[in-house]
């Protein structure tokens, strides 16, 4: 009995600092964010007035917010399928080979671990228009017309997506490959004996068995693209999300509202919107994964 009490006490003692941390650094700021989003506070004025939902009304009336919400959606829609399809194909190819598998995997994951700020600037340099941009010079060499990339309102966002895909692919390949290698060989052998061809093996056995991994990675990537910031900040002129706001995502909007205009009320209202979107996706993911288990 005494030992039990001592152990309980020890447990609480061990948890004291970490729980205080979570309460003050994670939980309290979250509550505080909700609260600020209902006030008209900017950091300069000493007063906070409760304004109800007017910040939420205000951001949805703000054309720039709507544009950045739409841009965020575009990042997700262009980015997630590209990353998933590309990395799944790569993982399948890698699974075919035996030698140097580790080496390829290592090279593919390099962009993922390099500082995003550095890679953003390297790509920005590569995306320059002729005569300085190396990609355009290559297109030129092939006899293809030059592209505007980051300087065009239509091409800038896909260009940033392309860079992000380049970064994320390696991470997904590793997880896909681990998933592929955990598929029991007997399943595939049995199907082969039954006369299934390669295509059938892939779509009837491999991919359905990989489904939980695909769902997991899709959600991870969705959240990553929803929170996109660093690339855009470093790849658009003066971190503006331009040209003409065409690349500005939600988080950059929040950053500018909060730390350029010091409009903390509307900025936190926008963060709450982001939170709700991410929450919805996570809940859906849990539902989908739980259903899959019943198969």
């Amino acid at each position: 009995m005494k030992l039990r009490q001592k152990k309980i006490l020890t447990a609480y003692l061990f948890l004291l600092v970490p729980l205080t941390f979570f309460a003050f650094i994670r939980f309290y700021p979250m509550v505080s964010a909700f609260y600020i989003s209902f006030t008209d506070w900017n950091i300069i004025s000493p007063v906070k007035n409760f304004v109800g939902f007017s910040n939420y009304v205000k951001i949805f009336q703000d054309q720039v917010f709507r544009v950045s919400l739409l841009n965020t959606l575009k990042y997700v829609l262009y980015g997630v399928p590209s990353v998933i399809i590309l990395s799944l194909s790569l993982a399948l190819l890698l699974n075919n080979i035996t030698k140097f598998q580790g080496f390829y995997r290592l090279v593919y994951v390099m962009p993922y671990i390099t500082p995003l700020v550095a890679t953003s600037w390297v790509w920005r340099w590569m995306y320059q228009k002729p005569p300085t941009g190396v990609i355009n010079n290559f297109l030129n060499f092939l006899g293809l017309p030059a592209r505007s990339f980051l300087m065009s309102t239509t091409e800038a966002l896909p260009s940033i997506v392309a860079t992000t895909v380049w970064i994320e692919v390696g991470y997904c390949v590793i997880i896909f490959l681990a998933g592929l290698q955990s598929i029991p060989k007997e399943y595939l052998e049995a199907a082969k004996v039954d006369g299934a061809n390669r295509r059938q093996l892939l779509f009837r056995i491999t991919i359905p068995l990989l489904n939980p991994v695909i769902v997991f990675l899709s959600v991870m990537e969705m959240i990553m693209f929803l929170r996109i910031f660093t690339q855009v900040y470093n790849m658009s002129d003066q971190g503006s999300g331009g040209p003409l706001n065409s690349t500005k995502p939600l988080v950059l909007y929040i950053y500018q509202k909060a730390f350029k205009s010091f409009d903390m009320g509307t900025a936190t209202a926008a963060t709450v919107i982001l939170f709700l979107i991410i929450l919805a996706i996570t809940v859906i993911q849990l539902k989908v994964l739980n259903r899959k288990v019943q198969y």
């Binding site: 228009k129 005569p131 355009n136 017309p145």
Partner: peptide, 17 residues
């Protein structure tokens, strides 16, 4: 201009920013 009509030397730089 180059063969494809890209400017490689600008006559006048235009930069509103």
């Amino acid at each position: 201009y180059d063969k494809q009509g890209n400017i490689v030397q600008a006559g006048l730089a235009t930069q509103p920013s």
